[in-house]
Write a protein that binds this DNA or RNA. Structure first.
Length: 562
DNA sequence: GCTTTTTGCGCC
DNA sequence: AAATGGCGCAAAAAGC
């Protein structure tokens, strides 16, 4: 059975059962909702229907309630609209309701696409735009029924059903991870900052170590003031010293022989740590030795997650030492090795690439096939591996710079199916057509400006460039979005299998961390292996010949993984 | 003066 | 000849 949960504008919740009997009081405050929900979850094992998990699930979590399964109307609507090639239409609940009823779109709803951060979201009950007399629960019920029908009418109902279920489960996992938090030792972080930067100073001031480095940079340039935080100032200073630079970026500076370069590079690295993950970040984001990021499921067009505040998906490697299991607990850290090329092999059904993907290090065996028997010493082997990697990344990203083009040509000879798969995707994008992931994530339509530029006569050069740019985007989309399909199913499966109280604490594109009591860590590792198997089978089919190695390591500290 | 854009760099 | 994809964030610059 299904239980629809709708937050009404007053902040209370309305509950409605589909396909079952449920004696429900009218409007429930959050605390009472949690009591009832815990019982229903236990006795009925329903699939919950949320207008938005991100918006409403925290009310259950705060009451200590976790649910097994759900359907997120907001995420489903976004996936369905894109899949139906209506990606430009509004995703609000009111708009979805109006479409389901065959009414004109509500006036308030801004079209999707531009600055969707502040647009009235699907779940926002304030100014919901629903017709008078229609409650959020009414709308949710109709939209849910409508969405189920749309799934069945899609080209691949089974894939889309799986995608929406996995995406909804991912949203549950994301909300739970925000509540549980990533174990984060503030004392270790503080000590590390002090070692690298000097004692803590008030915001706006340079810590001692940064001040010293800034002085050394200044000394290397003479008396004219130089601000190492100001790229323009740095470029001008080098110009006065007779070195013309296109920018002050680190990789540009590294090629320059000048006494200012070494302290400047060190300054930039430490200044970055200070501004992005310094004491201000620690104060704002870590409480009670937990970092609680806000994840945005489906926040990236390709289906990857984004994050809001705290830069949860950009934790620098140097800070992994701060991530430590609680006493008596372990971290089970696992990442999918070379996920994207393996996804490409599976998508394209490329037998040769699948054979290559059978080895644990894909790029090593790729090099063997590409440069068969050419050389054998270790240095050449490393060089070949690097070339094989560039070739593969160029295929997936559309790279043509340097030797990429010739390496790609060699890759095409050896793996025609895989390369033509991404090249078809690129060609579709260049023509303004949509492309899809394995489970049906669909690329957004190009903008009106793009169509005007590429469709009209005149600006030939601009048209070609825009066309190529969009082709690179769709080329990458099919791989990245299909990888997101696989990880969403993996996450959904893993979340369901984990033995309590082990729980997910981190997810980043192709990597998961589970916080587990010592004695369950091995069991968690088995769950992971089983989830990998399940994800591969459900996304790519039982006959999929591609291996997806995801070795889990059991550690006390994130920095010790791998 | 405030807001938006650019630069640069962290992650995959 | 050359233009490798996706993000978020802080600080400074640029725009209003």
């Amino acid at each position: 059975m299904h239980i629809i949960l709708a937050r009404e504008p007053e902040g209370t919740f309305a509950v409605r059962a589909l396909g079952g009997e449920l004696t429900v009081p009218g409007a429930l405050p959050a605390t009472e909702l949690a009591e009832h929900a815990a019982r229903w979850e236990r006795q009925l094992r329903p699939r919950w229907v949320f207008t938005s998990v991100e918006h409403d699930y925290p009310a259950l979590l705060d009451g200590g309630v976790r649910v097994r399964r759900c359907h997120d109307l907001a995420l489903a609507e976004a996936l369905l609209l894109a899949n139906e090639e209506r990606g430009e239409q509004s995703r609000t609940l009111a708009a979805a309701f109006a479409r389901a009823r065959g009414l004109d779109p509500p006036a308030e709803a801004a079209p999707a696409g531009h600055d969707d951060h502040d647009q009235p979201a699907l779940f926002d009950p304030r100014g919901s735009g629903l017709p008078p007399g229609v409650t959020v629960a009414d709308a949710a019920e109709l939209v849910f029924t409508e969405q189920c029908g749309r799934i069945e009418r899609a080209a691949h109902p089974q894939r889309l059903r799986l995608l929406i279920a996995a995406e909804s489960a991912s949203a549950l996992a994301a909300a739970e991870m925000s509540v549980d938090g990533l174990p984060w030792r503030a004392d270790i972080h503080d000590k590390l900052l002090t070692e690298l930067l000097g004692d803590r100073v008030p915001a706006g001031q340079r810590p001692r170590r940064l001040a010293e480095l800034a002085d050394r940079v200044q000394a290397a340039f003479g008396s004219r003031p130089v601000n190492p935080d100001h790229p323009g100032s740095v470029v001008r200073a080098f110009g006065r010293a007779g070195v013309q630079l296109p920018s002050a970026r680190a990789h540009v500076l590294r090629e320059v022989a000048h006494p200012a370069v070494a302290p400047l590079l060190e300054y930039k690295e430490l200044a970055r740590l200070h501004s992005a993950h310094g004491w201000a970040w620690l104060d704002a984001w870590v409480h009670g030795d937990r970092f609680r990021p806000v994840y945005v499921v489906g926040g990236v067009v390709s289906g990857r997650w984004a994050s809001r505040g705290g830069a949860a998906l950009q934790i620098p490697r140097t800070l992994r030492v701060c991530v430590r299991a609680d006493p008596g607990w372990k971290l089970v850290v696992a990442d999918a090795a070379q996920l994207e090329p393996r996804v490409l092999a599976a998508l394209a059904g490329d037998r040769t690439l699948a054979e290559v993907a059978a080895s644990a290090d894909l790029y090593d065996s790729l090099a063997e096939v590409m440069f068969a028997g050419a050389r054998s010493d270790a240095a050449a082997g490393q060089d070949d591996r690097q070339k094989a990697k560039i070739a593969m990344l160029s295929a997936m990203y559309g790279g043509t710079a340097g030797e990429a083009a010739s390496l790609l040509a060699l890759l095409r000879q050896r793996f025609p199916a895989a390369v033509s798969y991404v090249e078809h995707a690129a060609l579709a994008g260049e023509r303004g057509q949509l492309v899809r992931s394995r489970l049906g994530r669909t690329s957004p339509p190009p903008s009106a400006a793009w169509r005007a530029l590429t469709g009209g006569a005149g600006n030939e050069e601009g048209a070609r460039r825009a066309s190529r740019d969009w082709g690179r985007f769709t080329r990458n989309f099919v791989v990245q979005a299909s990888a997101a399909d696989w990880t969403a199913v993996l996450l959904a499966s893993l979340r369901g299998r984990l033995p309590a109280p082990a729980h997910l604490v981190f997810f980043q594109h192709d990597e998961v961390i589970v916080h587990s009591p010592d004695h369950l860590a091995e069991q968690v590792r088995d769950c992971l292996a089983e989830s990998v198997r399940e994800a591969t089978e459900r996304v790519f089919g039982a006959a999929c010949p591609v291996r997806f190695p995801m070795t889990a390591t059991v550690v006390d500290c994130y920095a010790d993984a791998k």
